[in-house]
Design a protein around this nucleic acid. Structure first.
Lengths: 198, 198
DNA sequence: TATTATAGTGAATAGTGATTCACAATTCAC
DNA sequence: GTGAATTGTGAATCACTATTCACTATAATA
């Protein structure tokens, strides 16, 4: 039977989400257009009505990820006025996001998106740089407010901060959910605070 | 012309190394048996004399990586008697290793090796767990020697330690060598020491 | 309502790449 | 040196998958 007609905007979103789901569940290698189309309830050739090709679909998932990250940033700055607290909240949000979208680490570290021209590896780098930049700003603000040691370099701290998020996420995903992120963070976060708090 | 006959042991090593080289230079997607065979100076079908198939070649690269990591551990315990110093040396070794074998992050995060049965994801997890276990031991030893804060949980510290290594490595590789690891580490390492040193 | 742009379909194409196999050369054991 | 085991070769196969295209149904618009 024939799929109900939908406008390109919603289809694009559906397709990108379907791709992320498949990557999360089966991995990038198993990501083929048939599977994506099936998940959306379309026929492979229909995807070409909405995307130029597979490559562009991958790009779309990247865009989705960037939006999720930016969304997280916006939310935490609204939830608390304290930079340090914002960082803690952001950490929590990131970890739940990665647990929900297991596709993220796979996409970030894949080389399938590494087309030199349009971006690929560079695009991923830009996203992470953007996140690091925002964290830097939070750290600097923390210094202005007397919460954070003034002798620390905000950029360095931002990378260290990333280091408190990444390994737990990766261990969790490699262990297929066995690594206990919450328990780890309960012990690890105080170490971070201790290291940066004035 | 015909390639000189070599025994399987050396061929296996050559093939695994060739695979790693290609992954480092072109990525996992570009890793096909023709390319591997060409690099070794063989014909694709010849690879089947030494490996059961592509999957097994990937596994072999994993084994190679594990050996490199264990080698690093052995060396640093020989180079210094101080656990904290050993950790610093190990960090340096790891970063240079990753710079030399860019294939490592790609292999570790790929899903091509994720065969539920023989290991795959589990195999990678085991390697990292092994590394973390060793680091834990170093931390515990540091506590016994009065170098490290006794209230810290060694396992937690080992994950934090990993967090000081991973992000720089990843940023370096995503930025195609632009991110300055040494400069970052010069600032970041004191933060780690400060956090764990008694 | 008639026309047109938009979205969906199924079949065909075409390239790629892993794997198999019968055969040839080389090395090893005896 | 002779036969067996090992390693290398090239052609053939086989599956998979991205992409194209002519055609059809549906929604939008005038």
């Amino acid at each position: 039977m024939r799929a109900e007609k939908q406008n390109t905007a919603t289809r694009r979103r559906q397709i990108a989400l379907a791709a992320m789901g498949i990557i999360a569940r089966q991995g990038l290698k198993e990501l083929n257009l048939s599977a994506v189309a099936r998940e959306v309830g379309l026929v492979p050739s229909a995807l070409y009505r909405h995307f130029k090709g597979k490559e562009e679909i991958l790009q779309a998932t990247l865009t989705l990820i960037r939006e999720l990250i930016l969304e997280n940033l916006r939310i935490v700055t609204r939830e608390s006025p304290s930079p340090l607290e914002q960082l803690r909240l952001l950490m929590r949000r990131h970890l739940t996001m990665i647990q929900e979208f297991q596709a993220i680490p796979r996409i970030v570290f894949s080389d399938e998106i590494s087309v030199p021209e349009a971006g690929g590896k560079k695009a991923v780098y830009k996203i992470i740089r953007g996140l690091l930049g925002q964290v830097s700003l939070l750290v600097a603000r923390g210094q202005q407010m007397g919460q954070v040691k003034p002798d620390l370099d905000p950029d360095t701290v931002s990378v260290i901060y990333l280091g408190f998020i990444q390994p737990p996420a990766i261990l969790w995903y490699l262990s297929q959910g066995n690594f206990n992120i919450d328990r780890h963070m309960k012990k690890a976060w105080p170490v971070f605070e201790e290291a940066v708090k004035l």
